[in-house]
């Protein structure tokens, strides 16, 4: 398992337990996140705090999960992005698609 989860208020907090979020773990990330969404978790907050870099494969997996969440009437927010990962979201315009917050608490209050 690369994702550690816990419920807080009405959201599922998903901590990515990886330093390098890349091609080698993108499929597993996608499968685990899809499974959590298919289990009925509508509002998911994905925490990137431990991640030092994200590649295109991992971003594609995250987008795939967002599509599933939205199809199920839910949403995904992301938190804990370092400056490079935040810049990458901006580069591919995903900052316009995902709600990005500094930390979990901020995401829960929708600040």
């Amino acid at each position: 398992m690369i994702l550690r989860t816990h419920l807080l208020d009405n959201a599922l907090i998903v901590d990515i337990q990886l330093k390098e979020a890349n091609l080698s773990n993108a499929d597993q990330f996608k499968a685990e996140l899809h499974s959590l969404i298919n289990s009925g978790n509508k509002y998911v907050i994905v925490n990137f705090e431990q991640v030092i870099y994200v590649d295109s494969s991992f971003l594609g997996a995250l987008v795939s999960a967002l599509k599933l969440a939205m199809n199920n009437g839910g949403d995904i927010a992301v938190v804990g992005l370092n400056s490079d990962i935040r810049s990458l979201f901006q580069l591919v315009r995903l900052d316009k698609v995902f709600k990005i917050y500094t930390n979990t608490q901020e995401a829960l209050t929708g600040a």
Binding site: S56, A61, K67, M70, N71, V97
Partner: peptide, 22 residues
């Protein structure tokens, strides 16, 4: 405005796009 349709139509392959933009 980002609609649900916009999200559903999102590309999931970013590799060459990322390099081209960077």
């Amino acid at each position: 405005y980002v609609s649900k349709e916009t999200v559903m139509g999102l590309n999931e392959h970013y590799g060459l796009m990322i390099i081209a933009r960077a």
